[in-house]
């Protein structure tokens, strides 16, 4: 193996071990799981006041919507005609209404959960590089010798691996909980939501935190950098997950009812596209931050 790759892999393993010892990621994702399970009581709240749709059937000049009565559980049928019928999205006929509703109840809970996660990441992970200075590891690494480029790659990738694994495990736990407690969910859609939305924003924010936190010499200063990055977290959340929240198929259908063309799949793709477009500027800026921090660390190393 190339010496550079060998060193990067060594840093990744060392940092993973340190993260395990510090319990930071475990606490972070533990809070996420507990928070989402706590928030899931909102599903109970909505289900005690709203009848649940079980099927939607489109006929020649009318729409038949079947519900389950919230109080008695008895089936209820509602027939819509004329303008009222035209407001019902056509794609309702092509989805399993029970799974569809439970899945979106869950995904809409994940959005505030991810927002809190984005706020939690910077203060907790900004310390990663300064800790090496605080515990005199940097001098040992510099004596290796280890290129600043490889050091930064190792630190960031190690955190990204930890973040990805933690987010995957916690999402599986909360999705499994919702599946068992509230009924079947669309696993494929949840995987897409995780891969396209949750994971990239978590990686972007953890990247900013570990890189900019690396400019500090002590953990204390790094935590303050993490606090300052909360503003960036809100910007990232606003451009991505909140964009997805307001453009999810349920809200879009309610807003554009009657005029909303397209299928369920096309609405989902539009939602993801909006979020990905919102994330791109932050991902590009992350590359710039990476180069900047690499330059600063090199300059500091040459000066010392």
């Amino acid at each position: 193996m190339d010496i550079g790759l060998h060193q990067i892999w060594g840093i990744v393993r060392y940092e993973a071990l340190m993260q395990w010892r510090r319990r930071t990621l475990i606490v972070l994702f533990g809070f996420f799981v507990v928070g989402i399970i706590g928030l899931s009581t909102l599903i109970d709240s909505s289900r005690t006041v709203l009848n649940r749709m079980t099927a939607v059937q489109f006929e020649a000049d009318r729409v038949v919507i079947r519900y389950e009565n919230v109080a008695t559980g008895a089936p209820v049928e509602q027939v819509l005609t004329g303008d009222a019928a035209a407001l019902v999205p056509r794609w309702f006929a092509n989805v399993d209404m029970t799974t569809f509703q439970t899945t979106w109840e869950f995904l809409l809970l994940l959005v505030p959960g991810v927002l809190v996660l984005l706020l939690a990441i910077p203060p907790l992970v900004a310390e990663i590089i300064p800790l090496d200075s605080q515990y005199r590891i940097r001098e040992l690494l510099a004596a290796a010798p280890l290129a600043q480029r490889d050091y930064l790659f190792g630190k960031v990738f190690s955190l990204w691996i930890g973040t990805g694994v933690g987010l995957a495990i916690s999402t599986v736990i909360v999705a499994g909980y919702v599946h068992v407690r509230y009924g079947p969910v669309d696993a494929l859609l949840i995987v897409r939501f995780w891969a396209v939305l949750m994971l990239p924003v978590a990686l972007i924010m953890s990247g900013y935190a570990v890189l900019l936190g690396g400019l500090a010499r002590t953990r204390r200063t790094a935590v303050f950098i993490g606090i300052a990055l909360l503003a960036v977290s809100l910007l990232v959340a606003n451009g991505t997950i909140i964009t997805a929240y307001v453009s999810n198929p349920l809200f879009v259908s309610a807003r554009d009812a009657g005029s909303a063309a397209g299928t369920y799949e096309s609405l989902i793709v539009d939602m993801f596209n909006g979020a990905v477009n919102g994330a791109i500027p932050f991902a590009v800026a992350l590359v710039g931050v990476w180069v900047l921090v690499w330059g600063v660390l090199r300059w500091k190393a040459e000066g010392s």
Partner: peptide, 15 residues
């Protein structure tokens, strides 16, 4: 044993 958790919880609660 470290400040980051306290910082985080205070910010989240107040916010």
């Amino acid at each position: 044993k470290k400040s980051a958790f306290g910082v985080l919880l205070v910010i989240l609660l107040v916010g």
